[in-house]
Write a protein that binds this DNA or RNA. Structure first.
Lengths: 138, 138
DNA sequence: CCTATTTCAGTGTTACTGAGATCG
DNA sequence: CCGATCTCAGTATCACTGAAATAG
């Protein structure tokens, strides 16, 4: 008779690893005075350049509602500028400021440190293998 | 200049894979008329045998508060029996019933189907590698 | 008219916290 | 007196929903 064990379940192992990573990330962002949502929006802005909030939400996989709240905070800190789109009155055009670019650089270091912390038990070849397999899961 | 991309982050890939797996699991449990917490408690009971709620919570990694709520539902369905511990008045002894064992068997099939669904893109060797690497992440 | 965007308020879920009652 | 257990109520968080206002 085979006793069921959660530790044998791929979904359980995924959930544990992800939960641990998420906790470390959240702590690191809090310590750095930021949030995961803010980081994701800054990354999206750096990737696609100035964009509407709807497009940013799609890029960062953030809900339209959370985009609003997060941009409010980023704008208050001077990390983004929000101005109406002259060619489409429904939209804002959101752009990174220089301070925003510096903030993103700073958060990149924070995030990189957490990646190292999470992957620490694996050697470089194992890390590549893990990433490739995770990517294969779609 | 290297544009940051979320897809390059191990923590992001972990989170995506885990989120997808979690969603599939949740749907499958809902369709089967159960919940993840209930499954985890049934597994813990099958592993350790009759136990106090506190011990079950530690085994299943469930909060004491969620153990109470989940056991209420499992007891109402006749899947577990809760009776006072004669040797320690603070505790309940919780035990699987026959119906509970059948329920666990049923849920094992549900869970196995989701594992297959999640791992579908990987061949058997890749699956073993992924599990080994995830386990190494502690 | 219908769809898209931005915004705000509110909901539901999941995990947790606090406190009371009981007992060792 | 301290610590553990069980229970309930309430909170914090995150992701999302609904609806209003504006515009294409």
């Amino acid at each position: 008779m085979d006793l069921p064990r959660l530790d044998d379940l791929p979904t359980w192992l995924l959930s544990r690893a992800s939960g641990r990573a998420h906790g470390l990330l959240q702590d690191a962002f809090r310590e750095a005075g930021s949030r995961g949502y803010a980081y994701r929006l800054l990354v999206a802005l750096a990737q696609v350049g100035p964009a509407s909030q709807a497009d940013l939400g799609r890029s960062a996989e953030l809900d339209r509602s959370d985009v609003v709240t997060t941009l409010n905070a980023l704008a208050a800190d001077g990390f983004v500028e929000r101005r109406p789109d002259p060619s489409d009155g429904r939209r804002n055009i959101v752009a990174l400021t220089d301070a925003g670019r510096r903030e993103l650089d700073r958060l990149q270091d924070v995030v990189a440190a957490v990646q190292e912390q999470v992957l620490h038990p694996l050697d470089p070849a194992e890390r590549r293998t893990l990433l490739a397999l995770l990517r294969k899961l779609r």
